[in-house]
């Protein structure tokens, strides 16, 4: 293996773009399933940045943080989808704008 010589900057730009896309989706979508997907994209983007940094200095640490992010994502999705089911049962909708009982 070896021989990839793209500037680190480009990888990070990719991560930043993915992160921004995720953020955009999070703010844009009203359906909670899409919001969860956007979160996945953002987590993935962050993981990409870590792996790139780890590759840059040829250290395993980047991949270890990726593993942690992976488990966080798994736990988050498990709980988040459980919540989705509850919301669907309770409000009969997935529109997060109508589920606004926290309004002050």
């Amino acid at each position: 293996m070896g021989g990839l010589t793209v500037p680190l900057e480009h990888v990070l730009v990719l991560a930043a773009l993915l992160f921004s896309f995720g953020l955009l989706g999070l703010m844009l979508r009203r359906n909670i399933i899409f919001m969860l997907m956007s979160l996945e994209v953002m987590l993935n983007a962050a993981a990409l940045a870590f792996v790139a940094a780890g590759a840059n200095w040829a250290q395993p640490d980047g991949q270890i943080v990726f593993l942690i992010i992976l488990s966080v994502a798994a736990a988050e999705v498990a709980v988040g989808l459980g919540l989705v089911l509850q919301i669907q049962r309770r409000f009969k909708t997935l529109d997060m704008d109508t589920a606004n009982r926290l309004r002050g």
Binding site: M1, G2, G3, L4, T5, V6, P7, L8, E9, V11, L12, A52, G54, A55, N56, A58, Q59, P60, D61, G62, Q63, I64, L67
Partner: peptide, 19 residues
């Protein structure tokens, strides 16, 4: 960030040892 990614592989073994 002027660095160039080397693309040197970090083996799963190394990751496992660090982990």
């Amino acid at each position: 960030t002027p660095d160039i990614v080397s693309g040197v592989a970090v083996e799963p073994k190394a990751v496992g040892l660090a982990l």
